[in-house]
Amino acid sequence: MATKSGRTIIADQPFSWKTFFLKWEWLLVILFLGINVMNASLSEYYLSGAGLFNATNSFLEKAFVALPMAYILVLGDIDISVGSTACLSAVMLAYFYNLGVPMGLCIIICLLTGTICGAINGLILTKFTELAPMIVTLGTQILYRGIAEAMLGDEARGGLSSVKWFSNLYWGKIGIVPIMLICFIVCAVIFGFVLHKTFFGRRLYAIGANKLAAEYAGIKVQKIRMIVFTLTGTFAAVTAIFLAARMGSTRADIATGYELEAIAMAVLGGFSTDGGKGKFPGLILAIFIVGMLRYGLGLVNMASQFMLVVIGALLIITVMLPNIKSMFKVKKKA
């Protein structure tokens, strides 16, 4: 069918090699390969299967919270309380375990804690929609960390590694593949699928691109924000579980700065803080870039403080690249 004036509108995506190769993900692929080449030249064991898997285990627990963080950024929101949420969830887990509660139940308590923390963020932000998420989650960041500190003070609660299956969540392997990596891949595939292939995902993008138009299109904006903030709390607790399994004990100062690292991974992966942008393959690449870079810098015994300098610089330079490119374009024209 054509229009009245005889025009037809093309419904097939025009393909061009130029746009294909100008995709953000290619830059990330190059970065990823570069970092792996660097690591391989630093350690002869790195490229062996076990070596690579060990490398992923050094950072993947944080990556669980980066998955829902990408959703938050798509919505145009932000959540900087996830580090504190993870800490409080881990503290609750260890606290109840030391009271003699069975580990299975402790894990449920941990997940509930995270979920409730996320739901509180969501509730405040959806009932008082004019509040800025940055400010609200800054408040709960301090609040959740404060509760954890009130519970433990300077002490640590430990003994978690005496439950073999629990510590295996982090340390265990199936063949040579770490259990945590398998869990992460499953979660990442689900998150990516939901974002790119379902109504829910499309609605996230719509809200991030234009909240008002999304509402007029019949999308329940506040309900969806509530779901995503709550989900983020739950996944902060998932991070907490793997972290507790790794360390065997918890303190009130763990998981500090995780929120920023999760946001950094998402932004590097192409998710803009303005909302409505970003694709999941980019996020996964970015998670591995940041993680592998940290691992590589560890191989050369770089102090962790200096590592932050390198990662921060990497983030700034990479997100600046597209702008530098357009800057040159303008100059050429003028």
Partner: peptide, 11 residues
């Protein structure tokens, strides 16, 4: 097409 939009593609 039904509303006769002046556009080349739906993208």
């Amino acid at each position: 097409e039904r509303v006769d939009t002046k556009a080349v593609t739906i993208f």
